[in-house]
């Protein structure tokens, strides 16, 4: 067994699948990160992905063009995010509950639409849908091992890597990132500064919708070449947990999503050695929860330790200046307190 796992872990094939499995979860995790930073929980990511996956398939089948499919899928996904925004931000509805409702609509609605169009409830194979292309990267493809892992992936996998860079820049370098953080951290302060928090939250929702759109289309037009009912398989929920593991940062999202990707990819291999598929399928979800618990546990320990240190270093005597000795922990302000 250990030999087998060691063999798997060193094979380029495994890591190729890891990247492929990580990409969709990475995209939605980024979506969860940006909405969480803006102070709104996008529980509808699951629904966004489902609608994107179906719309992509239908549009690409209708036009014969995968790119139009992708655009339509992203459009559908953003629409879900906007509906969530409308109910949660304009009608003061509980955002989490609305997200759940939209997921319910998506679960049944996608099947309903699929059935109305094809007469089949399970799979879209009767639709002549297209898939998004894979890219072979010149030069890189010739590097032994690495070339096999990195090159030849679907274009969305590269887009997911690009998305990390973009979201990271947006959050840390651009003014809009500061406004998003201000909105999420102290909405009153943002409003008093003349920022319209509703607009910021809508913006974050739209971005998360676009990201979930890429992820959803990838599932039905790259990862597989069909829409199947429930194709998102809870990835939208996993993203909301992974967001916490990511610590609210774009770069952290890579590790959080990778955790799920590693397990997801391992499942394919474990099945070959006779592990019951049911248990293997449960693994990514269980590991995500476990990852969450471990990360939170470590953070709590560190926090307690830091407080103790601060106190012993700072325990006596006040200061005459307007500034106190202690530094604010950055993590405190960044999503850590939100939970997953």
């Amino acid at each position: 067994m250990i030999d087998f796992i060691a063999g798997v872990l060193t094979s380029a094939n495994y890591w190729f699948i890891v990247l492929r499995s990580t990409a969709p979860i990475l995209l939605v995790t980024l979506g969860a990160v940006i909405t969480e930073q803006a102070g709104i929980k996008n529980m509808a990511l699951e629904g966004s992905m489902l609608w994107a996956a179906l719309t992509g398939v239908i549009a690409s089948a209708a036009t014969g063009n995968a790119w139009i499919g992708l655009a339509a899928g992203i459009g559908a996904s953003v629409l879900v995010a906007l509906v969530l925004g409308f109910f949660a931000l304009k009608l003061d509805a509980n955002a989490v509950l609305c997200g759940v409702a939209l997921n319910l609509v998506a679960t049944g609605g996608t099947v309903f639409v699929l059935f109305s169009l094809t007469g089949d409830k399970g799979i879209s194979s009767s639709l002549p849908s297209k898939v998004l292309p894979s890219l072979t990267i010149p030069l890189v493809k010739d590097i032994p091992w690495i070339g096999k892992v990195v090159s030849g992936q679907n274009i969305i996998v590269y887009i997911s890597a690009l998305a990390v860079v973009v979201i990271d820049l947006v959050l840390r370098r651009f003014t809009i990132g500061r406004r998003i953080r201000a909105t999420g951290e102290n909405i009153e302060a943002a409003r008093a500064a003349g920022i319209d928090p509703i607009r910021i939250k809508f913006l974050a929702l739209i971005v998360s919708g676009i990201l979930a759109g890429f992820a959803g289309c990838f599932l039905s037009m790259g990862y597989t070449s069909n829409f199947t009912s429930g194709i998102a398989a809870g990835r939208g929920y996993v993203a909301n947990a992974a967001q916490v593991v990511a610590g609210g940062t774009a770069v952290g999202s890579i590790f959080a999503a990778m955790l799920f990707g590693l397990m997801d990819a391992m499942a394919t291999f474990l099945q070959n050695v006779g592990m019951p598929p049911e248990l293997i399928q449960a693994l990514p979800y269980a590991v995500t929860i476990l990852g969450f618990v471990v990360v939170t546990f470590i953070r709590d320990r560190r926090e307690a330790e830091r407080k103790r240190r601060l106190f012993s270093g700072n325990g006596s005597g006040g200061s005459g200046t307007g500034i106190s000795h202690a530094r604010t922990p950055r993590s405190k302000a960044q999503g850590l307190t939100h939970g997953m």
Binding site: F87, D92, A101, L104, V105, T107, G108, F112
Partner: peptide
């Protein structure tokens, strides 16, 4: 499955304070 559409709709309305 059209029932889940109605289900979602009901939750959305009831959740809207």
């Amino acid at each position: 499955e059209f029932i889940t559409l109605l289900q979602g709709l009901i939750i959305l309305i009831l959740a809207s304070d």
